[in-house]
Design a protein around this nucleic acid. Structure first.
Lengths: 234, 234
DNA sequence: AGCCTGTACTTTGGATCCAATAATAGCTAA
DNA sequence: TTAGCTATTATTGGATCCAAAGTACAGGCT
């Protein structure tokens, strides 16, 4: 079978996060192996990787179970992201924003402005924003030049975030999403401003608050009353 | 062979960090398998785990090499630790310090005071302090009750820190170490105070600064001129 | 003499085999 | 009828085998 190890990890990660296995459910090597069309060996390797990522955890002395994430866990993951990306932003601001990175970020912001300039959101725009957003964040993290920080962020990002599976359809939800995305866009601008001015502490603080937008509706402004529940945890 | 998988990971981690393999050196499955007295399979599994931990990295399309850490990397790891433990401390302060944890921390501080009360340091005291210090930090992290944060910290802690292999012998070095440990002790006290008072922001800030003490000689006060070099990185 | 190519060897990745162990079901005895 | 013990089964962990890919060395060609 033409499937290198990394592909197995990716596919298994997808298989789990897309509901092939329920949280708390025991996950067996043979079944996964059959589902992915490979032998047990690459699956066993993948299990170890996913264990380290936190998606799986060792069961009672034997095998693995799919880790279940509480609302509280999601909030923590968001805060960890904020702490780490905030750190990256501060370092970048203090050490100076390289011109190449500046252009990248400006590009993201410009295209984000185009996307949101209409004043409303089409369904396909969400995916466009998503890649734009990813590029923005990735550019900052990679610009710090530290694999230690980058890896830490990367690992944390593999955890399932609430926003990942929020699919909106009706126009009311689209409008609410528009507000959220617009706020995110504004925050990106502020972060960029701080980075450019070399304001490290401010860049960090902004980035850290910006992370909360990863929660369903929680942000600087509580767009939804449920946000309070999410933010003071369990 | 009576060696479960976890033991192989632990032993391999030790083998690498204690210089069995040089940073940047290619690490082969068969040789490690022979050295640990197991077959290739558990070694391959362990390689994946250590890859996720960041100790190994994939070589050019084939195999693994031992990751090399620059001074800059060590600094980053320290700052990541600070950011994450700071986060844990803030959460703990804001959500209230449970009595059990309070007693644990008080115990650590009391025993630390005993240890450092003599005014000088014996060589064996360093190990004693080390466990005391670990207990203190672990107590705080575990008290947050978040596996997400705890795991992130744990993973970061597997990275090699500069302090890990600093072995001091002469009395001048011991004295310098005493100053460092005493400062750490004071910082612990301040962190504890902030936690008890529910001063989240202060607890976080103190914890974050406290992380820098993990660098060889860098701290609030530059006990060594080289600290400057370390702290503004590459 | 230098470079290119082919072949042999080294090493990793995947599959399968075997042993050990935990879970489960069935049976017996109280 | 239930509890405990035993045997069977299912599943993981370790070892070995095989194939594929990379690397190094050598020989030939330009």
């Amino acid at each position: 079978m033409s499937s290198d190890d990394k592909s197995v990890v990716t596919r298994l990660r997808k298989l789990i996060s897309e509901g092939g296995y329920q949280p708390g459910e025991r996950i067996g090597e043979v079944r996964v192996a059959e589902q992915l069309g490979v032998s047990r060996t690459p699956v066993r390797l993948a299990f170890r990787t996913l264990e380290q990522e936190g998606l799986l955890q060792r069961a009672n002395k034997r095998g693995f179970v799919v880790r279940e994430f509480s609302q509280e866990d999601v909030l923590c993951a968001v805060e960890v992201r904020g702490a780490l990306e905030g750190l990256a932003a501060r370092r970048l601001a203090e050490r100076g924003l390289p011109p190449v990175v500046r252009e990248q970020l400006e590009g993201c912001i410009a295209r984000g402005a185009d996307l949101l300039g209409k004043g409303y959101l089409e369904e396909a725009d969400i995916a466009r924003w998503s890649t734009l957003n990813e590029t923005f964040h990735r550019a900052i993290v990679e610009a710090t030049g530290s694999r230690v920080i980058g890896d830490a962020i990367q690992r944390n990002n593999h955890l399932p975030f609430a926003s990942a599976d929020s699919i909106v359809i009706d126009s009311a939800a689209l409008n609410r999403e528009y507000q959220k995305l617009y706020l995110a866009h504004q925050q990106h601008q502020l972060v960029f401003q701080a980075l450019q001015r070399g304001e490290g502490a401010r860049a960090e603080m902004l980035m850290r608050e910006h992370a909360y937008i990863g929660l369903r509706y929680g942000a600087l402004f509580d767009l939804d009353p449920e946000a309070d529940v999410a933010r003071d945890g369990g």
